Computed example of a mutant assay.
Amino acid sequence: MSKNCRVSVVVPSYNRAHILKRTLPTYLQEYVGEVIVVDDASTDHTAEVIRELMAQYPQIRYLRNEVNSKQGFTKNRGIAAARFEYIYFGDDDSIICPGTIARLLDTLQTYDADIVGAKALYALREEQIFRIQDFVAANDRLADDPKQIIDLSTMRVDFSLSYKEPLEVPFVQACFLVSTQLARNLQFDTCYQGNAYREETDFLIRASLAGKKIMYDSTAVQVNLPRTASSGGAHAGTSEDWYRSAVENNNYFLDKNYAAMQAKWGLPNSIEQMRILFDAEMTARYRAEHRYDWLRKTGLYKPLKAVKNWIGK
């Protein structure tokens, strides 16, 4: 094992056997000593796929939960098993671009940060994954104002945007680099159930409230596979279940953290206003998703700008 190995990648997984051969190898980058896959009691052939991958990539390790226990518990198992100084939390339905781990490590050290998050892009079509550098370049949009990336007053974020330099933020998206000791001290809250929405935001906000420094580095990039290719995971149930779970978990997050967030950052909205904002956002996303599904099923969907704009209204 190389002396340069400093990072344990932790990837929780549930019923994603069909894409693991595509996603997991992308995490085996410079400075990565192991990729720990924590199987949350999948009912597909995940174990068989992982055994095949382990034969090809000895850095891959496999843990399995006896019962489905959701993201918080699953990530905590990975944290406990990690052997290296830092942990990168990956997704089983995402790939990371070459050099991402090295960039995150460099930013963490250069800025004396505790946590560094990557840019998150979302592919709409599978062919975009096979031309990943072209896809990343075509979706390189520069933010003029940090509030375009994260506005804590409304909890609105867009981590698909680039910024001219690494940016200090109160939280990042789900895939980030953190010291193993800090992860063990914080732990993920296992009370987030269903789709576990906000579980990573909870972890990161608690780090911020404790005075930890969090950076966003848009030169490090993870790309989420299209939904058509990545069934399973948090989207294993119905669409209605997912949105209901998101609202329930957001309410739990606000009840737990919002008073402390207001005290630290002087946030203008009340907790009830924050609930209303989030519920409205989820309602709009649900309607847009079902408009898209209807168009796709009827064969009327065309990847034209006008149609995309109509769907997004």
Rank of each mutant, 00 (worst) to 15 (best):
C191S: 13
A263L: 13
F253M: 03
Q148F: 15
K70H: 08
T100L: 01
A284W: 13
K302Q: 12
V157Y: 09
A263W: 06
N76F: 00
S218Y: 06
N250Y: 04
R141S: 04
V11Y: 07
T298L: 09
Y292W: 13
R287H: 14
D134K: 14
S8Q: 03
D39T: 05
L20V: 01
L142R: 14
I115S: 01
S94R: 04
F73V: 09
S69C: 01
C175I: 15
I95S: 04
L295K: 10
R285W: 03
I214G: 02
K213R: 14
L295W: 06
S69R: 10
F89A: 07
F171G: 05
V307M: 15
N257V: 07
V178W: 06
A82M: 10
E199F: 12
A207G: 05
T228P: 00
Q59I: 07
I271E: 09
S239E: 08
S69W: 06
A196C: 04
N185M: 09
R64S: 06
R16C: 13
N195P: 10
Y192D: 14
D134A: 05
E200P: 13
Y286K: 15
Y14V: 06
K119S: 10
C191H: 13
D145C: 10
N68Y: 12
Y163V: 00
I205S: 10
W265K: 08
A263P: 05
L186G: 01
I87A: 08
N76T: 12
K147C: 12
L254Y: 03
S230I: 09
D114N: 04
K308G: 10
N139G: 09
Y301V: 15
V307T: 08
V136E: 12
Y286L: 07
V178Q: 05
A196G: 00
V11P: 08
Y62C: 04
D44S: 14
Q187D: 11
A120E: 11
T43E: 06
I50Q: 07
A138K: 09
R287C: 04
P303A: 03
Y122C: 08
D255Y: 07
L124W: 06
F278V: 00
A80G: 00
A113L: 00
D112K: 15
L182T: 01
S239T: 10
F89H: 12
H45P: 01
N309K: 04
S239F: 02
S179T: 13
G33F: 11
K305P: 01
L105R: 02
F188D: 05
L28M: 02
R244P: 02
R296F: 12
I132D: 13
A246C: 15
I129M: 03
T180V: 11
I95M: 13
H235C: 03
I96L: 09
V172E: 11
A236C: 08
S208F: 08
V172K: 14
V9Y: 01
A41V: 04
D151Y: 04
A174T: 12
Y122H: 05
E199N: 15
S208K: 11
E126D: 14
A143L: 03
L24H: 06
M282R: 13
K256P: 13
R64F: 00
S270V: 03
R6I: 04
T219E: 15
